[in-house]
Computed example of a mutant assay.
Amino acid sequence: MTALLSSPAAVLTGDGRLDFFATDSVGAVWHMRQNAPHGPFGPWESLGGEVRDPCAIQNQDGRIELFAIEADTGAVLNGRQSVPGSGTRR
């Protein structure tokens, strides 16, 4: 894993776990999920992309949504989980 450059964006899920998102030196998004509430975290995993300033929220139906700014165009990008508690989608 490369060094993370952005401050991590954190979101508390409905089941009490934390998810973190950050970007590396080339703008790829990295994600780390807590295994259980108040428990240890799993490994960082790359979600790819070329973005900056990630921000994560939990929407009304419990899915995590990730927003970020595309590095080249400045467009706001959005990705969300397909179901609450599942792996993230880009």
Results as ranks from 00 to 15, higher is better:
residue 1 M to T: 14
residue 1 M to F: 07
residue 2 T to R: 13
residue 3 A to K: 13
residue 4 L to K: 04
residue 4 L to M: 15
residue 5 L to H: 11
residue 5 L to G: 14
residue 6 S to R: 09
residue 6 S to V: 13
residue 10 A to R: 08
residue 11 V to K: 01
residue 12 L to R: 04
residue 13 T to M: 04
residue 13 T to K: 07
residue 13 T to V: 02
residue 16 G to E: 10
residue 19 D to K: 04
residue 19 D to Q: 07
residue 19 D to E: 14
residue 20 F to Y: 11
residue 20 F to S: 01
residue 21 F to V: 01
residue 22 A to W: 01
residue 23 T to E: 05
residue 24 D to Y: 02
residue 25 S to C: 05
residue 25 S to E: 10
residue 26 V to M: 11
residue 26 V to P: 01
residue 27 G to W: 01
residue 28 A to R: 02
residue 29 V to P: 00
residue 29 V to N: 00
residue 29 V to S: 00
residue 31 H to R: 04
residue 32 M to I: 09
residue 32 M to V: 09
residue 33 R to F: 12
residue 33 R to T: 05
residue 34 Q to P: 08
residue 34 Q to A: 08
residue 35 N to E: 10
residue 38 H to S: 14
residue 38 H to A: 14
residue 38 H to T: 12
residue 38 H to L: 12
residue 40 P to I: 07
residue 40 P to G: 15
residue 41 F to D: 03
residue 42 G to T: 04
residue 42 G to H: 10
residue 43 P to H: 05
residue 44 W to D: 03
residue 47 L to G: 03
residue 47 L to C: 06
residue 48 G to D: 07
residue 49 G to P: 00
residue 49 G to K: 01
residue 52 R to K: 14
residue 54 P to S: 05
residue 55 C to D: 13
residue 55 C to A: 15
residue 55 C to S: 15
residue 55 C to V: 15
residue 57 I to G: 11
residue 57 I to L: 13
residue 57 I to R: 12
residue 60 Q to W: 14
residue 62 G to P: 08
residue 62 G to M: 10
residue 63 R to D: 02
residue 66 L to V: 07
residue 67 F to G: 09
residue 69 I to M: 10
residue 70 E to L: 12
residue 71 A to T: 08
residue 72 D to R: 13
residue 73 T to S: 15
residue 73 T to V: 09
residue 74 G to A: 08
residue 74 G to S: 13
residue 75 A to L: 13
residue 78 N to R: 14
residue 78 N to M: 12
residue 78 N to C: 13
residue 79 G to I: 00
residue 80 R to A: 01
residue 81 Q to I: 01
residue 81 Q to S: 07
residue 81 Q to G: 02
residue 82 S to E: 06
residue 82 S to F: 08
residue 82 S to G: 09
residue 83 V to C: 09
residue 84 P to N: 07
residue 86 S to Y: 07
residue 88 T to F: 08
residue 89 R to H: 10
residue 89 R to P: 00
residue 89 R to M: 12
residue 90 R to L: 11
residue 90 R to V: 03
residue 90 R to N: 15
